[in-house]
């Protein structure tokens, strides 16, 4: 090893040690747990090695419910939140007056605590003995009948969770997209204007391709974030998510470790590895699709 690369390794050492300790080792550990059948955390013993943990998890109706919930969350919230964020940032970039004020307002949810936001949503949506909640009051005014969004039908709960998630992830996307839009060279817009390009065409043919790497980044991180959703559901529906049919995959893993049915690190590990595989697959598919649509300068 020459002097230069020895130096490089020394510089990298702190990062490598911490990554190894807190990322690589747990990953290996989780993989090992996930194949140890009947592991007992008190006695640290297990019966044998095999795929039973995976089989159990995949046949567990609570897990399948969690996968279904997570999938709906991902498929619905990522595209919708990205599109709305694009519209908001495009709007923000085209105004001059009060732009800073609006930017701050749109960014507020990002600095607000998840549970505090959950509380606000409870006030908006929750139906109690005393009031039907603000949203129901509006629905009533429009001639509809009240819906119990927090303890009611599945679709209503899912809708609240999706709206909540979109609202929470929006500010970061708006922030990133606004700066991406500001970085597009004004000359392209001037050139397009001189050539008589319509606003819509400028947006789809020039703006979007120019910021496509950022949009792609937001979609990838959005997918990963939505797959790892958990605290949002807790903020709205409490800790007993299985009973509320609102559990997510990460929620299921948590329950297997520490919940009422907890104490099963092997099942939790198997579920975690399955989640890992799903996210990896989706991200790879995303990357493949992006090759066609994303333009890197």
């Amino acid at each position: 090893m020459d002097k230069r690369s020895r130096k490089a390794w020394i510089y990298l050492l702190p990062a490598i040690v911490f990554l190894g300790l807190f990322m690589v080792y747990p990953l290996i550990d989780v993989s090992i747990y996930s194949v140890e059948e009947g592991y007992n955390s008190a006695s640290r013993t297990f019966f044998g090695v095999g795929s039973y943990n995976y089989s159990y998890v995949l046949h567990d109706p609570y897990f399948m419910q969690a996968v279904k919930n997570t999938a709906i969350l991902v498929i619905f919230t990522v595209p919708v939140s990205t599109c709305i964020a694009l519209l908001i940032s495009a709007g923000l970039s085209s105004i001059k007056a009060l732009r800073k004020l609006y930017q701050t307002i749109y960014f507020l949810p990002y600095v607000t605590n998840t549970l505090a936001v959950g509380l606000v949503f409870m006030i908006l949506f929750n139906k109690t003995a005393y009031t039907d909640g603000l949203i129901n009051l509006i629905i009533n005014r429009l001639g509809g009948s009240s819906v119990d969004f927090i303890n009611g039908p599945y679709w209503a709960k899912m809708l609240v969770l999706c709206i909540y998630t979109i609202w929470v992830v929006m500010p970061f996307k708006v922030l990133v997209l606004t700066s991406a839009l500001a970085s597009v060279n004004q000359q392209y817009y001037d050139a397009a204007r001189v050539d008589g390009t319509s606003k819509m065409r400028i947006f789809t043919k020039i703006t979007l391709p120019m910021i496509s790497p950022i949009v792609f980044y937001l979609i990838i991180t959005g997918f990963i974030g939505a797959f790892k959703a958990y605290s949002d559901a807790v903020a709205l529906f409490g800790t007993n998510l299985n009973a509320a049919e609102m559990n997510t995959i990460v929620g299921y893993i948590y329950d297997m470790l520490y919940g009422n049915s907890g104490g099963y690190p092997s099942f939790a590990s198997a579920a975690a590895i399955i989640l890992f595989a799903i996210i990896l697959t989706i991200t790879c598919i995303n990357s493949l699709i992006s090759k066609k649509y994303v333009f890197y300068n």
Partner: peptide
């Protein structure tokens, strides 16, 4: 108008760049 830095759309080919004003 021909810009000092040309302002060619970098994600489009030369042909698509030339076609762009016509498609407008």
């Amino acid at each position: 108008l021909v810009f000092q830095n040309y302002a060619l759309y970098p994600h489009l080919t030369a042909m698509q760049n030339i076609l762009f004003p016509l498609q407008n």
